[in-house]
């Protein structure tokens, strides 16, 4: 079983966003970066599948600057076998990112290529699916349950008010959602072992793409609300306000 996981370095989800100079991206000063949480499900799935198969290789691929090496090391510490850093600037256009990743993955002999369903910075939900389309592979996106056996892959995706059951033959691309597993913490031994694992750096350059970020702003502050009252008697007042003032019931 040969499995690739694509991993993105993103600001920690608790980061307080400050718009940077230029007004198109965030101010990264003092921001802590972490592996994209959805990608951690993919990393866990890759490690668990290899453990179950008893043999194979797991590879983590990341696009980014030198700092992304630390993110790759986190995956290596969790148990991924080796890393590849595609060194270059990202793009607001997910298709450009997908093209670079697909070029690296193409011909790699992977049975499975895993992604998180989206990155928590740009919220695109796009790159994994696009890589599958470019490579002509089946794509099971946003799966919260995953099963690989006998050359096939099955998954479940939450849809509005239901669950879609998906099936395809390997090789395939899968993007993972919360619920698919619980990512392990790297062990301390794993962290020490990670620095000895291979990490290849390959320079890449991305195309211009068709999406141009023209601005980034903070959402308007909500107007301060009001306390309707204290205790159960306030419930009647609230119900009236929701009907007559807010007009939502």
């Amino acid at each position: 079983m040969k499995i690739a996981v694509c991993l993105k370095r993103v600001p920690d989800t608790t980061t307080k966003i400050v718009v940077g100079a230029g007004g198109k991206s965030i101010d990264e000063a003092g921001v802590k970066f972490v592996p994209n949480p959805y990608d951690e499900y993919a990393v866990e799935a890759a490690i668990a599948l290899k453990e179950k198969a008893g043999a194979g290789e797991t590879v983590v691929v990341s696009l980014g600057g030198d700092a992304a090496q630390e993110t790759i090391r986190t995956a290596l510490a969790m148990g991924i076998d080796r890393g590849v850093l595609l060194k270059g600037d990202g793009s607001a256009d997910g298709l450009e990112v997908a093209r670079v990743l697909a070029a690296e993955l193409n011909g790699g002999g992977y049975d499975l290529i895993l992604f998180g369903k989206m990155a928590v910075d740009d919220y695109h939900h796009a790159v994994g699916v696009m890589v599958g389309e470019i490579l002509g592979l089946p794509v099971l996106s946003s799966v919260s349950a995953l099963r690989v056996e006998g050359g096939t892959v099955g998954g479940e995706r939450e849809i509005e008010g239901g669950v879609e059951v998906l099936a395809a033959a390997l090789p395939a691309v899968v993007t993972t959602d919360k619920g698919v597993n619980t990512p392990r913490l790297p062990s301390l031994k794993g962290i020490m072992a990670a620095k000895k694992k291979p990490l290849e750096v390959k320079p890449v350059s991305l195309g211009a793409g068709t999406m141009v970020v023209t601005g980034l702003s903070l959402p308007p502050e909500r107007q301060a609300g009001r306390i309707v009252g204290e205790g159960p008697d306030a419930a009647a007042v609230l119900a009236q306000l929701l009907r007559t003032e807010a007009k939502v019931i």
Binding site: E70, R73, T74, A77, L185, P186, L188, I191, M192, K195
Partner: peptide, 14 residues
């Protein structure tokens, strides 16, 4: 070192 930070962060998360 990077490992020291990683170890600290891992235990912090735990």
């Amino acid at each position: 070192t990077e490992e020291e930070r990683a170890i600290r962060d891992t235990v912090r998360t735990w």
